[in-house]
Design a protein around this nucleic acid. Sequence first.
DNA 1: GACGTACGTGAAAACCTTTTCGGCCCGCTG
DNA 2: CAGCGGGCCGAAAAGGTTTTCACGTACGTC
Lengths: 333, 333
Amino acid sequence: MSRATLRDVAKLAGVSVATASKALNGQPQVRAETRERVVRAAEQLSFSPNTLAQGLITQRSGTVGLLTSDLEGRFSIPILMGAEDAFGSDQTSVFLCDARGDTIREKHHLRALLSRRVDGLIVVGARPDTRTSLGDLPVPVVYAYAPSDDPADLSLITDNTGGGRTAVDHLIRCGRRRIAHITGDPSYSAAQDRARGAVDRLTEEGLTLAGGEVWFGMWSEAWGRGATRMLLDRCPDVDAIFAGSDEIARGVLDVLHEERIDVPSRVAVIGFDNWSVLAVNSRPPLTTIDLNLEHLGRIAAQRLSAAMEGTPTSGVETFPVRLITRESTAPLR
Amino acid sequence: MSRATLRDVAKLAGVSVATASKALNGQPQVRAETRERVVRAAEQLSFSPNTLAQGLITQRSGTVGLLTSDLEGRFSIPILMGAEDAFGSDQTSVFLCDARGDTIREKHHLRALLSRRVDGLIVVGARPDTRTSLGDLPVPVVYAYAPSDDPADLSLITDNTGGGRTAVDHLIRCGRRRIAHITGDPSYSAAQDRARGAVDRLTEEGLTLAGGEVWFGMWSEAWGRGATRMLLDRCPDVDAIFAGSDEIARGVLDVLHEERIDVPSRVAVIGFDNWSVLAVNSRPPLTTIDLNLEHLGRIAAQRLSAAMEGTPTSGVETFPVRLITRESTAPLR
DNA sequence: GACGTACGTGAAAACCTTTTCGGCCCGCTG
DNA sequence: CAGCGGGCCGAAAAGGTTTTCACGTACGTC
């Protein structure tokens, strides 16, 4: 395969480049018969227009940058996928850049992306805490997952507080009253927010946390196991555990299983993240909260498109999470 | 921030665009003093060259496409990361496209990428079986993880056979003699290859598989659990289990734990993939085989660069895997 | 003082496409 | 028959950069 240009096509069709261009782009001022000839010539040479040249003149590159710090992580990928399919793949392609949490690498990538004249930028954080704004750029930017600290930017985030509330609400509806919350690193706003949502819902019901307080620790199975042992020790009549992540939930389930405490009949367990390799394969399969990240990605793409068309928005938009019920929770009795 | 062009810079510096270009690109035929003036002007306007225009004339877009079918999966990401850092991020940016296993979507993406004049293409499969070649393209292509069926293409794959051999070799060195192999879907060449490597190594040692044959099934924890129960039933004196994936290994560990069979003192367990969320957090942490995919990605980028520079290669290159020892294996006694 | 050389600079072409505008031809109207 | 309008096409400019080549100046050499 070689590389035909529009001029080659025009020559083969016996017309000028201008006409060839119009023919291929569906412009009306070209006779049907001529158009047909051009189209055939283009096919014959397997012509595909040089997007660089197009971008040069339309001032639109048809590309966007996705700047992440969480490539190995599991948050940016679903967002990326959502974004990818919200932009028609023929219209817009996405440049993926992973800054690996390094600010200077991020600057570097940013520079490269601007140099490539991306039409917009999606910035995905590694954790849901606010991050510093990229400042004023010549292209629109959407922050996803981790919000920008500048209210003039547009940030799209998941509703962690609502997630905590939803989780506890589900447990209450299952008839549970002695609900504990084991979660991860307290320096994560996600941990704080989920806990707050959980406690709020309990309070509404006139309940307090089993175990007396939130069990903060680490985002790991090991912590889930350790905390569960301590919890059972201190509060053996607990009838539900809300884990701050699916990893933690796996640890919780593991210990309950070891102690021959049946899930869900005696203790219900709910996780967070819907990380399917963990949630689907656990014993029993884990009820959990899905962050709906593909949706977030799709919306990010839409907002970015809107901004590119000239109608930017700003502020923080919060998106609801979704309860995924599996078998680790069930009504009492 | 606005968008300065080279002309603006030139005007501000009081030189022609030609001179400005040469000054910024380190061409020798510019007086030092002039260069300095241009550079300052460029900084002042925060000029960044339009890569589209550069690409148009140099016939190099400085981009490559990464075409995958496994974005949600865990194979393409490490490869992508390896590739990303092998290309200097300032030299080359990567377009990420996920075909989601759909051939027509793949064609679509391919068309778009060629239209964007990518300088090269990396194709990553979702599973390690051979895939049909994309055929003759105007840019070099490297197939990674899943090899192309056309020997004229260059394919980079992991050594699954060697991995199976390495796993069993390690178990043998731990003094194990009654080694079973529980693995996934037999339609995957990965499953077949790993099994073959395992059996070969056993044969060299004059051993046969505990349980009589390879236990093919599914790539899931549940199958790992089920198979282990059957295995213990039929062959209670097994002293090592080689699991075809870390997921399966988790299932294996789970049942052994349930049956109060100590790992590694009575039965050693080794997994495959080094999927860290599974392997690191298991009880005990899992010895496993790492596919070294970042390395594969880096090599893919290097081979692609070489091909872009005019020295293409072809055939299938196989890359060694790596044993990661944790605590689920140990010498007997 | 004439000439050659080296160096620094600028004009212009090239990359490929889109779009505007002018021109041509045809048929129609008055 | 003159004039006019509409339909179709091509010439040319534009977009931002790199590169080639020619030009001008200053200097050194004979």
